[in-house]
Amino acid sequence: MLFQQIVNGISVGSMYALLAVGFSLVYNILGIANFSHGAMIALGAFFSYWIARYLAVPVPVAILASIAFTGLSSALVELVTLRILRKRGQGSLYFFIASLTVFNLVTAVLVYISRGNIVSYPRAFLSGTFTIGNLYIPWIDAGMLLISIVCLAVLSYVMFKTRFGLAVRAASFSIKAAQLMGMDIDAIIQGVFFVSGTLAGVTGALLGVKYAVYPYIGNFVYMALFACVVGGLGNLTGAVLGGLLIGLLETLVSAYISSAISPALTFAFLVVILLLRPQGLAGRATEEKI
């Protein structure tokens, strides 16, 4: 049973990890908790559902199309909120509020469109379960883990082997210094929102397949935030570890302590981390951002 619980935990955790990485990317460069990430999760789930249902294309194709959509939506959000606020020289609190507003707005619109219903995909995708010994592993969980690994590999290639990735990492240290290198900071930030949006989109779509598609699915963004805090804000590896850890923690607490108290214990754990290790489990002492 313990091994089955660990499998359950990792499958949840891998999704948190992917969400946390996307969340962390924007935090790194701007120092802002971007809650419009939650909107992208929900849009990813709904776009792929709508495409699969109404265009009658295979689910993987729908998911790919939806990822492109959420990437663009995220870039659009950057353009109409953050860009304007930045040019006006307004502080990060304004963006925080704007991003939260976008999140709530999108959720409200989706509640309206879907009449709040939970819906599932018309055709089965990665349905069923395979067994290893007496471990039951749903295909969707295995698929999610695999897809997270692929996404993280692609992301780390982009971040460490490309000119864009170099610019993102440079700007994450100092936007001013990056500009002095001739980096187009507007384009870079927009690119980061695009990448972050695609990660939210793929996660949202997969969560929709795994559970169901419903307007409040964007609330998973809070798990991304928690994972980032646990792993160390601004640390991509930490975000991945934080995601896996929270997934496991939730599952094991539910299984062995009490499932009704599991959210409370997760928050308590978060508070402990914040008090004892504010830089997160994987983070070094926070460097002052110049």
Binding site: R163, L166, A167, R169, A170, S172, F173, S174, K176, A177, A178, L180, M181, G182, M183, E287, I290
Partner: peptide, 29 residues
């Protein structure tokens, strides 16, 4: 920068999260 005007900010503004080599790459952006 493309017009040939580059600024060297004070030393604390090197990208300390990047390697020396990557810093130079960033300069060649």
């Amino acid at each position: 920068v493309r017009a040939g005007v580059a600024q060297v900010p004070e030393g604390r503004q090197v990208f300390s999260n990047l390697t020396v080599y990557e810093n130079l790459l960033a300069g060649a952006y």
